[in-house]
Amino acid sequence: MFALRRTALPALSLARGYATSGNVSALLFVEHKDNKVAASTLNALTAASKLGGSITALVAGNAPDAVVSEVAKLSGVSKVLVAKDAAFEHTLPESQASLLVEAQKKHGFTHLIASHSAFGKNVMPRAAAILDVAQISDITGIESADTFVRPIYAGNAIATVKSNDSIKVITVRGTAFPAAGHQDSAAPQEDAGVSADKDLSEYVSEHMQKSDRPELDSASRVIAGGRGMKNGENFGLLYEMADKIGAAVGASRAAVDAGYVDNSLQIGQTGKIVAPELYVAVGISGAIQHLAGMKDSKTIVAINKDPEAPIFQVADYGLVADLFTAVPELTKKL
């Protein structure tokens, strides 16, 4: 009876959101593009809320006004620090990391948090090293203010780790936390009061894939094609099906390497991690590295003509069939 009660106690304080650890003060580094907050930052905000302390959001940019007012209304944000400077127009890691370090030193945050996106991955470790602290990458769970859960070995093992550093630098796996909602009143904003460092590198250009379909990492339905698609034109079959059910389209590494689709569509250990309600793998064998990017999907469907394909071992529903007849038929019947 007593033993039960003792184990119940920590759980209770968890539910309260660390009522005792009132010293948690987290800084959320906001990623944004084209005047919009990146979807993965909303997931990182939810993770930050689980720490139980205050959350300050840091927005850096050339003219980030629209983003600042959007962030101020996000649930759990108590203050928005604004760093407005032409140097922050592009997310160059050198100036962004030194901004983060300056903000930390000025305000004494206990946690620095960003999403484990290309942006977060680029900037956060640089800042961590300058602060002489470790980083905990790609967390999928929070056990306490210093203990986190993260996948290793392409998601084939789950590690629970405790940070012994005074400042915790964390990147968050977006699919492991729901997106934060909105709050009634807007949080106050404040000038970050830090100057931009001289940039060590220079932004030249970018080339973004334009698509009307939902974003891959936040879509609730994803259809992905692999080597079995045979060429880029055949991906048209997947686009038709995707448009019918409002899904995003992704790909395996084999399909990307073969040039069927753009790199930014790759799902897997080294590409995007997705966890939609429905994941349809078409002509994908299911290598370890691909499974790392999608095996937390709620329902997995596999369409493959090889009954031995490893993808069938994780698929909730497998259809052994030629994709070139099965996919058009499926599209018609949806």
Partner: peptide
């Protein structure tokens, strides 16, 4: 390689 496409930077 960044989310959504590619970006080009120049560094000394």
């Amino acid at each position: 390689e960044v989310d959504g496409g590619v970006e080009t930077v120049k560094t000394p």
